[in-house]
Computed example of a mutant assay.
Amino acid sequence: MARFALIVPVVLFAFFAHDADAVRCWTCSSDLNPLCNDPFLVSQSENSYLFRLENCDATSAVSYPYLTSSISACKKQKKFVHGALVISRGCTWKRKDDYTNTCPSTSTSANEVTSFCETCDYDGCNGAAAISKTIALVLAPLGLLLFK
């Protein structure tokens, strides 16, 4: 029984942990694809072929010049362009020592006003709200209690 109690947390950690490979982010914009809007439900859409997960490190040399001190991340941004709400999802770059989920500062014109911008660092995290980390935090102690 003690072995089983040790295996459960290890399996949970392996299931919810992600490796340090390049992050892959959903890439779309609601002004070009209305299905990119909220709620963003790729798996439930019959048009899921219209979405793709982009490897953020594939275009790193072009996108961000300070690669030695940066990491790739996913971004979800809501902004008003000429008064219309546009939701965009894609890749961005952050300093390695930036542990916040705020976007790096971006310049906007008078015609664009950002109302929300958030970053995350695991595959597909800029899609629908993910609860996998919450589930892991709840299940790990629960598993330890059940198999004590």
Rank of each mutant, 00 (worst) to 15 (best):
V23F: 09
K78Y: 15
T68H: 00
L53D: 08
N126I: 00
T92R: 08
C103M: 10
S63Q: 14
C25E: 06
K79A: 15
H82G: 08
A5G: 13
T59H: 15
S132F: 12
P65V: 09
C120M: 03
S29C: 02
T102S: 10
V86Q: 01
L6S: 13
H18A: 09
F15T: 07
S30T: 10
Q44C: 03
I135K: 03
A129T: 08
T134M: 05
F15M: 05
I71Y: 05
E112D: 15
D38C: 03
P65R: 14
K96C: 03
A14P: 03
S48P: 03
I135L: 14
A61E: 00
D98I: 05
V62L: 11
R89N: 06
Y99A: 12
S60P: 06
R3A: 12
D31L: 01
V62G: 01
N126K: 00
A14E: 02
Y49R: 12
V8A: 11
C125G: 06
F40Y: 14
A22S: 15
D98S: 07
Y99I: 09
Y99H: 12
C125M: 05
F116D: 09
K76Y: 12
L12H: 00
L32D: 10
S29I: 01
K75C: 10
I135W: 05
T108A: 14
S45V: 09
D123A: 02
L137T: 01
G127P: 04
H82N: 15
R3K: 14
C125H: 04
L35R: 09
T119K: 04
I131Q: 04
L142Q: 04
A136C: 13
R89D: 07
R89S: 04
T92D: 06
A58G: 02
Y66L: 08
T134Y: 04
L144D: 04
D97A: 07
T102A: 07
C56A: 09
K94L: 15
S43I: 08
V11M: 12
S63Y: 00
A5Y: 08
D31K: 14
I71W: 04
S45W: 08
A20M: 12
Y64I: 00
D121C: 00
L145K: 03
V23H: 09
I71S: 10
I135G: 03
C103D: 07
S69M: 13
P65L: 12
N55I: 04
S109V: 07
A58D: 14
F4K: 04
L137N: 02
D123P: 01
W26S: 02
P104T: 09
R24I: 01
G124I: 03
T92G: 06
W26M: 06
L53V: 07
P9C: 02
M1Q: 13
